[in-house]
Amino acid sequence: MTQRLLPLGGWAWLIVSRFALGILFTIVTTTMTGRRVDVVDRVAGAVITSGALVVGAALVSTIGFVVFRGWEPLLHLNFFLDDMSGVGPRDEFDRGGIAHAIVGSAIELGIAIAVTLPLGIGTAVFMTEVGGKFAGVVRTIVEAMTALPSIVAGLFVYTVLIVAVGFPRSGFAAAMALAVMMLPIIARAADVVLRVVPGGLREASPALGASRWRTVWHVVLPTARPGPRPPPSSSASRAVSARRHRSCSPAASRPSWSPTRPTAS
């Protein structure tokens, strides 16, 4: 019977039709006791709740699917400690691992953060503390750069560093691509945090005779320190997952601790 109502067979469609019939049922029962407003209210509540449920189900199925399909190697410790050198595609799970990729990701991310953190916070300090006409231009550019699709950042570094300058495809080049991506995000986030530093604190410091640099270093940045931490970590998590920098680093199957040699990530 249910299968005839459905456009297609399968449990997914069973749930869909169950939902549609449930709403119909709600309408009928509410109409018996309440007015039109109540009916609309109930239906809207049901639709909104189930919309959120669909999203939750999608999230659970994504994570569940990845864990379900990939749990087997996790049971072998060598998955985290070993690399893929000398491992064939038909080997069992107790050979090889992803150590080289983890090391590669960590190196790339480390370089990218080391480059972007000072630059990004410096940009933010410039925008909020120095100010002036030029700061507005910089802010517009930073806003625009956040729209940069990561693939374009990767291609840019590929063309400039690897093709034009003749740099080897390496973790360093990949880190540069990540840095191009992360810089505007960090600068913008730090800018938002720096702007909420109370003006009173900011004016008290020069009033006591401190120079502008000492004001920034001893008053503004310490006040804002709890703030900037989440932005770097969130942009770092975005960068780790960005696979476009593969355009810059060829996959190597051995751990290479040197950032200027081929790496995997």
């Binding site: 909104i48 959120a52 999230l59 994504t62 975005r238 780790v240 997952s241």
Partner: peptide, 30 residues
């Protein structure tokens, strides 16, 4: 729908959890 549910319909107790779940979704690599 999800934004409306989180801000208006969800019980106040689980709201913070739902918000961090959405953030988690944003953090899943593409």
């Amino acid at each position: 729908l999800t934004a409306l549910f989180i801000s208006e319909y969800a019980p106040a107790g689980i709201r913070a959890t739902l918000i961090s779940l959405v953030d988690l979704m944003a953090a899943v690599p593409s």
